[in-house]
Design a protein around this nucleic acid. Sequence first.
DNA 1: CGAATTGTTGACATACCTCAAGCCCAGTGG
DNA 2: CCACTGGGCTTGAGGTATGTCAACAATTCG
Lengths: 248, 248
Amino acid sequence: MRLSLVPDNNRLIRKLESIFTLADDERQVLENLPMQVMGIKADQDIVRQGDRPSRSCLILSGFACTYKVTAGGKRQIVSFNLPGDVPDLQSLHLQVLDTSIGTISPCRVGFIPHEVLRDICERYPRLAAAFWRETLIDAAIFREWVMNVGQREGYQRIAHVLCELLVRLRAVGLAEDHACDLPITQGEFADAIGLTTVHVNRMLQQLRANGLIELKGDRLKVLDWDKLKAAGEFDPAYLHLERQEAAA
Amino acid sequence: MRLSLVPDNNRLIRKLESIFTLADDERQVLENLPMQVMGIKADQDIVRQGDRPSRSCLILSGFACTYKVTAGGKRQIVSFNLPGDVPDLQSLHLQVLDTSIGTISPCRVGFIPHEVLRDICERYPRLAAAFWRETLIDAAIFREWVMNVGQREGYQRIAHVLCELLVRLRAVGLAEDHACDLPITQGEFADAIGLTTVHVNRMLQQLRANGLIELKGDRLKVLDWDKLKAAGEFDPAYLHLERQEAAA
DNA sequence: CGAATTGTTGACATACCTCAAGCCCAGTGG
DNA sequence: CCACTGGGCTTGAGGTATGTCAACAATTCG
């Protein structure tokens, strides 16, 4: 555990800049975000449901996920957290966490005190809006996931999640056009799309057999993007990645 | 369609006040929210996916829902919107709507221009935070819904939604302790929890047979709240209704 | 009062689950 | 360097929750 005043949080900056141009002072604030940086092993909780955190965590590298656990002990992953994400930004205004956040692969995580964030929001209204916006995009993703598990069949569900992951990774510079590292296990996919690991396995094989993807070890290659998109009924609009245009 | 400067948006005020005490000027701003009030029949869209609205809508009375439609034409309701809700508050920062919002019963809806909201956010930081918080609670509900459709069986799912609706209605003064008006059709429940209307019907009958509820016409009576909560594994924490306590 | 929407029921089909075994591969320790 | 271990992946057989289709009953509403 070490303190750092020059953390490499360029994924977050990159995400925000894809939305609007940062002024020099705004960019500087982000580049010098005071945070406590920590390395965390795979499969560890970063924060837990019920916690009342006084800081938010920024994923600097690695894969994490937000999840809830059923009374019966079943786990639902409600979101994959990628570098540049601040998966518990909500705790700035909601005191008690209603989800846990855990690592999937080894991660580097930066913890930013809420006071710091509040201070920034006060002084840089555009950054406040940008943070708010980030939480709204999270919400949009949750909505799409409700639809995914509620209305689509297994085959479509996986196709959809794979599409989402590839596009989001691309947005933070962690994917080539049609390939990316993806250290997500079939069991984790299962918990994310509400199927069993057995069934996930079978659906993945079908995707492979149909020539849509190649998925081996931690590596995903999309062989036929159009077909994969079609299979998952994937329309990236809900990710709100497009630049803010002047309103009509 | 008429303009009103003294709209009865007390449900919203009530919700916000349950979180923190409003200052006089803040309360006055809310009481005098300039909005265009409109009566809308049942089963009409208020706004549509793809729209770029320049105002947000406040549900004044009646039931509405936020939904998405699959490429295959299946509808997923991702949220029920009750009086006091501003279901597209997000459009303040996300230009393109990724969902449609439609009425379930006849509604009175107030449209508030974005400029008005932005102006309030600038001048009343605590109200800005409160609005942000509202969108965060929406997100928390979406997360719970992902879990509901992803991990729970039909019987549990309905129990859960019924619990949520009753608690939320209570929070805005629209329910007695264990009963409320509920003009939601079985087909709508089906679209909300990812089942068919036939199966919803069977699960409801089971809930009735087990003595948990009475549901007839537009009226829900919960006969055994503890059992219903248990059946749906319902824990209201995710609704974040508790008062903001001083941080530890 | 008729017409439409909603609720109910039955018979049958299927996507997905459960259990259980075997395989592959990376890491570890002797 | 090899044997061992454990996690993840794969496969098969059989079971169940839920879907589909189709008819009919009960309500609501104009």
